[in-house]
Write a protein that binds this DNA or RNA. Structure first.
Lengths: 204, 204
DNA sequence: AAATATACTGAACAGTGTTTATTTTATCCA
DNA sequence: TGGATAAAATAAACACTGTTCAGTATATTT
């Protein structure tokens, strides 16, 4: 029965086309431009067709988010090169920050906006972020076990580093850091220095 | 000419009615329910009337945000009671966290969603957050000057504390912390403990 | 070739922010 | 006080959004 297989493949290809169009629009034109109608236009299908492949917009955005997390994992893989765990923490933190600057709209979808998380059931687990999260968790766990950091609990360590960097990034992306009246051009460098200072602070 | 004064007063009163209705809806029913039409319904005016008092939704949300920041400042005033600067840091951080839990939808408007910041011009300053920010900045500046913390620069200290706590809050509000598979009921206590751990970490 | 199953779409529904022409209400002046 | 003027409020429309559904076109099966 090669026919059902081909149909499955075609279904998957269509989903690919939809997700690719969506992520392109995210990166190129920003979140606002990503409407079902705009995606449909781009792939030259009617809006209703998209609903044959995705039950709603959230479910589609969830797949786009998965794609974005793939990019982040690749980013980590490329930029975390050190052997020393503490150095790896710093490399990860800075790579995470750099990613947020290079792909602001994707960062939004991955970590800030509500949308795609609605399609994750209350009890169900959220798999998209797992690979990237594991990177951080494994490094921090190693740091804790080798007593390289001032944390006793690996989970506290992991979430603290994540929260610290994400905090800066999201306050900045949402223009709340404006209140500090810093020079906008100097901001990225300032945030990087804060991150580095933090990593130094947690060293044992 | 008492008439123009009365008109001004009436204009202000109308803006009050609109903002009050909006903030009530935010707190009671959440961000999604706050549409111009819904607000108009609540104050028993037509939607178009709102545009006689606010140029667009962003400008209205900006005033709602100002109201919300008033609540936060009151929260700080009530909960930051210690004399010792380091104790004050901890009280502020925990008060900030408690506020975010008690007024989740307001926190959204104040620190997470894009919306009301569009009505702040690029070069113009954002006044809404100033009082609350000053609370934190003054405390951190004192800590730095008295060498109570491992920061040399007051601004780095201020933004680091803010980013750390905001990071946890926003990852949690947006369900991204799900990835850590912690017990949901135990989460608030866990976050509090992370915040306390951080405050201890930055002590000189 | 006819019957069935699959894929797709046009049009509609209910909602959004916003604008404009029109009507209602209030103020001013003769 | 009555008519002109100014201010305030609105109904209706526009252009958009996510989503659904009846109907059409295309494949597949018999």
């Amino acid at each position: 029965m090669g026919i059902t297989e081909r149909k499955e493949r075609e279904k998957a290809e269509m989903r690919r086309r939809i997700v690719d169009a969506a992520i392109d629009m995210f990166v190129a034109e920003g979140y606002e431009k990503v409407s079902i109608r705009n995606i449909a236009d781009k792939i030259e299908y009617s809006p209703a067709t998209i609903y044959l492949y995705y039950k709603d917009k959230d479910e589609l955005l969830y797949d786009v988010q998965a794609e974005a997390f793939g990019k982040l994992a690749a980013y980590f893989k490329a930029k975390i090169t050190a052997a020393d765990p503490l150095e790896r923490v710093e490399q990860l933190a800075l790579a995470y920050f750099d990613f947020s600057q290079e792909y602001q709209e994707l960062y939004d979808l991955m970590f800030i906006i509500k949308a795609p998380m609605n399609s994750v059931e209350e009890d169900e687990e959220w798999k998209n972020g797992l690979e990237a999260f594991s990177y951080l968790r494994d490094i921090m766990t190693e740091c804790v076990e080798k007593k390289l950091v001032r944390f006793e609990d690996p989970m506290t360590a992991t979430l603290s580093v994540w929260a610290f960097v994400h905090g800066f990034i999201s306050l900045n992306l949402r223009c709340r850091i404006k209140i500090a009246q810093l020079d906008v051009l100097a901001l990225p460098a300032f945030v990087r220095s804060c991150v580095q200072h933090y990593v130094n602070t947690i060293k044992a």
